[in-house]
Design a protein around this nucleic acid. Structure first.
Lengths: 187, 187
DNA sequence: GTCTATAGACGGATAGAC
DNA sequence: GTCTATCCGTCTATAGAC
């Protein structure tokens, strides 16, 4: 196992705190304390707290897609892969104790105050939706009369709704309805 | 027109700021400046900033249901009333410049740090869902073979997903898919 | 890289005079 | 109700010594 570099440790600790406590509620002092580094060291690697926020978003973006790839590696059939995506989001919610989606959270906290962050979140969600669209299109290839655009959009919205609902309810019930709806829409 | 009392003005200004900027990003000083009152006056009406947060949530809860009542007053047919709910959420998003759902926002910002707030949001979403359930049940009365529980859950999730998606995308496209899905599920 | 010190602004909240 | 002054803490960020 490779030794974790200082910069990586900073990002890991900061990401964890940003996610669990919120960006505004997390101070520089807490980050350096938990990462066990000096403040000078932090500002040697990052120019500002906002710079750390960028690194956080990039890290979560990469991990999200990498995590799904690993989770669904054994599955090739499109419909099963879509159901595996639902299962992936459910798993993420459970392992984070229902902390919610990183990108929905940061947008809720920052609003439009940071165009860079808004843009990043928008593109991230766009990539998620395109991934679903690809899978739905694959599934629809040898079927007929399937409205792939509407199915894509509704699966995407159902999953997003299930994530926010499970964050509020602190359980995974909402994902079950999503799975049933997908079964109904992909006969 | 009745003259707005000081306490009402404080709540109105604070609510607006909490919603647009976020709770943590809104300071007491900004609230008293925009409400044009003295700080002593604020603490005469509210014991703390958290006390103001409670008042904010209660206000938004009441206004949400009152707003929907007004919006759908002319409509009695259940299916049309559900579609009117979608239209209501769309309208709220447009008029707030896509600032999102008050309750999803505050949960995203505070996480589990305030059980009172978490509980309030959970109950609010529960009331929304029960309202949908009532309408779906009414609709299903003289139909057969409709899974009202699943339809209720999926409509609720679709709407929640559409709200967060429209908040990120800054447009109302997502609501169109919801309306089409409802049409499909309520034949 | 480490440490401590500190700037400078702002946070919530309180007290006293009017 | 208004006003000003102030306490005390925390915030991000910088500077200097080792």
């Amino acid at each position: 196992m490779k030794k974790e570099k200082v910069q990586e440790r900073i990002i890991r600790v900061a990401s964890d705190l940003f996610y669990r406590q919120g960006f505004n509620s997390t101070g520089i002092n807490q980050i350096i304390a938990e990462a066990d580094i000096a403040i000078g060291s932090l500002y040697n690697h990052f120019t500002s707290k906002n710079d750390l926020l960028q690194a956080y978003l990039i890290k979560e973006e990469l991990e999200w897609f990498k995590g799904f790839e690993d989770h669904s590696a054994q599955i090739s059939e499109p419909k099963q892969k879509i159901l595996s995506l639902v299962d992936y989001r459910k798993k993420l919610q459970k392992s984070s104790k229902f902390a919610g989606c990183h990108f929905i959270k940061i947008i809720a906290e920052l609003g439009d105050s940071s165009p860079v962050v808004s843009d990043f979140a928008k593109k991230h969600k766009g990539r998620q939706k395109e991934m679903i669209r690809t899978l739905v299109s694959e599934y629809a290839e040898n079927k007929k009369n399937l409205n792939t655009d509407l199915i894509t959009e509704s699966i995407f919205l159902l999953i997003e709704g299930a994530v926010v609902t499970s964050t509020i309810d602190k359980n995974t019930n909402s994902f079950n309805a999503v799975q049933k709806m997908i079964e109904a829409q992909l006969p």
